[in-house]
Write a protein that binds this DNA or RNA. Structure first.
Lengths: 73, 73
DNA sequence: GTCATAATCTCAATATATTGCGATTTCGGT
DNA sequence: ACCGAAATCGCAATATATTGAGATTATGAC
């Protein structure tokens, strides 16, 4: 999962929950600029920042052994 | 998954692969101090740093919904 | 069209991760 | 115990994320 994909996952989840960037930023106690950068894949957030935002959105990180990409299952 | 748990996962994976911290640091092009801090859960690495180390160890990040998914979108 | 909201960008100031080097401690084998 | 390797710590220098405020752009509603 790349930084861009992580940003997309955050953006999609945020929209699914119906909150805007500013509200998410407030809830996660980070600056809206930080949220913007992460969602756009332009950011390189510190782990604590990322975890806080994910937590706010009800998301979590898992670490797994890299899997091959299966085109169709 | 907390920063500490992420650090533990990295340490376990590294030992399972039989490489020391310095070698992992070299392969991931980061300082050994950075690896040490992350493994001990004392670090707050930037996402790119974490992803590089995970990639080197054949690990990947996944983002999942924390609680029961009743949305079924 | 106007209006309001959301998203994005710029910039400077601040906070913090990262690095490099060395010193120290811990660990494992013989 | 000894010895070598690994792991950890300390500290200053550097790199980069984060913040805050405002300005700009985009979108949608009316």
């Amino acid at each position: 999962m790349t930084q861009q994909e992580i940003g997309n996952a955050i953006k999609e989840r945020r929209k699914k929950l119906g909150v805007n960037q500013q509200t998410l930023a407030d809830l996660a106690s980070v600056a809206v600029n930080t949220v913007v950068a992460i969602e756009r894949g332009e950011g390189n957030p510190q782990l604590a920042t990322l975890l806080t935002i994910l937590e706010t959105l009800g998301l979590q990180i898992d670490i797994n052994i890299k899997q091959l990409d299966y085109e169709t299952v």
